[in-house]
Amino acid sequence: MYSITAEKLTKKFGNFTAVDAITFEVKEGEIFGFLGANGAGKTTAMRILCGLSYPTSGKASVAGFDVYKQQEDIKKNIGYMSQKFSLYENLTVSENIEFYGGVYGLRMREIRPKTKNILQKLGLDSEANKLVSSLPLGWKQKLAFSTAIFHEPRIVFLDEPTSGVDPVTRRQFWEMIYEAASRGITVFVTTHYMDEAEYCNRISLMVDGRIDALDAPKKLKAEHNAQSMDEVFYALARKAKRSD
C-alpha cells in the first residue's frame, strides 16, 4: 500500500518547468528522503503534494486522495513542518500545541492530556507555560515536529526540518522521526545534510526538475561506486544546469 504516488507529475510556470514529469511512490510507514540542490524543484513538488498548488499535468495521490480534486481531504490527513519556524513566538508552549490541535478540529478534552504527554516526552513539562520565544532553537524544532504530528496524520511532510540545529539535537530529532515512522506515520523529508539522507529508508534525488536517482542509500552508493551519500549527491547534482 502506497502513501504517496506520483506519475509524470509536472508543474510549469510559463516556459519554466519547475517539476518535470516525476514518477515515484512512497510506501506506508516509510521514511522517504527528498533531496536536491536549491532550485531543483523540491519545494514546488512538495507544495503540490500538500494541496497548496495544482500540478500542470500528470497524476498524484496523497493518502489515497487525488491532488486535483481532494485537496481538503489531503490536508486533513497530513502534517506539515515548514522550512521557516512555524510556531507562534508570543504564545506559550502549551498554547501553541492547543492552537494547532484546535485548528485540526480536536476537542480540548482530547488536546489537554495529549499535550501533557508530549511535553513529558520532550522533557518540556516545566516550560509548558513559557513563551516559545524563550526556548533554544533545537527545542523549538522538536516542538514544531510534535505539533505537526499532533493530530496523528498518515503522512508528515518535513521541509528541511533540521537546518541550523546542532548535531546532538539533530540526532534527537531523527530519533523522533523514527519513533513516528514506527507508529505507521509516513515521513516525507527534504534535507541538505547527506548524513541525514543515510537515515532514510529510500531517497530520491532531484536535478533540474527531474528525479535522477531513487533507491535505498546503500544501493545508490553501490551504484555510483561512492563511499558516502555526499559523493553520490555531488556526482548527480553537478549535472544540474540551473541553480537559483
Partner: peptide, 13 residues
C-alpha cells in the same frame, strides 16, 4: 512573514 501562514494553509482550516 514568520511562515505560520504556510502552516495554516496546509491545515484544513
Amino acid at each position: 512573514e514568520t511562515g505560520t501562514m504556510e502552516t495554516l494553509l496546509v491545515s484544513p482550516l
